[in-house]
Amino acid sequence: MAIWDYANPTRFMRLADRILPWLIGICVIAFAIGLYKSFFMAPEDYQQGDTVRIMFIHVPAAWLAMMCYSVMALSSIGTLVWKHPLADVSAKCAALIGAAFTFISLVTGSLWGKPMWGTYWVWDARLTSVLVLFIMYLGLMALWRTMEDPIKAGKAAAVLTLVGALNLPIIKFSVDWWNTLHQPASVMRLDGPTIHPDMLVPLLVMAFAFSVLFFVLHLRAMQNEVLRRRVRTMRQKAAASARPAAATATTQPAE
């Protein structure tokens, strides 16, 4: 199985080093094309005017917020079922990036809402679900931070991630129910098949660019995490070997 070849962190580091320059290149090019298209090619929307340009970052960010959680859920299965040594590294790194993109999507959503709805925040079904997702990301990160042993923290976070993944559709469903029950002011929605192709192309390019950006950041963060664990083990070794000869090894900053 190919994925097992990269169970060895050293081999993973080498592969990531080889892939990353290409990914960074693709990412820069995709962003250049996407931003050019979204500013110079896409027409103003007849209803939203220029604020439609916010959509070119809002929609990809919201899409990434979901994708990050899927990556975390898959990694959690990897941690719990196959005990893949890189799976919890992947889950931990995806959490921060996911929280960042969820934050972007919330902020851009409410900045879009001010001129469109006349208020920064509407308890709209989708905004509310994303807010709940954001809280879940932050809770997971808090769990990672409070547990000292990365292996134990990884397993605990994996359990919570999977329970959350089971719960997310239920939350989405119940928030939709709650929303229709309370009949909000009719809000304009951007989704639906009526989207103009001149807008769809930049949107897709931007979504692609954001996805590549995620993979670049994720791979880099995973490399860092592998290095961090290496440093941790080496420090522990240093401390263990320094202790018997503590008198002579005063220069060593044993942790």
Partner: peptide
């Protein structure tokens, strides 16, 4: 059970549980 090993897990536990309890509250 996730926060059982933590000395002061009560607050963290509440933060972790509240999002999961939202559907029950709504219905």
């Amino acid at each position: 059970s996730l926060t059982v090993t933590l000395r002061r897990g009560g607050l963290l536990m509440a933060v972790l549980v509240v999002p999961l309890a939202i559907p029950v509250l709504i219905f």
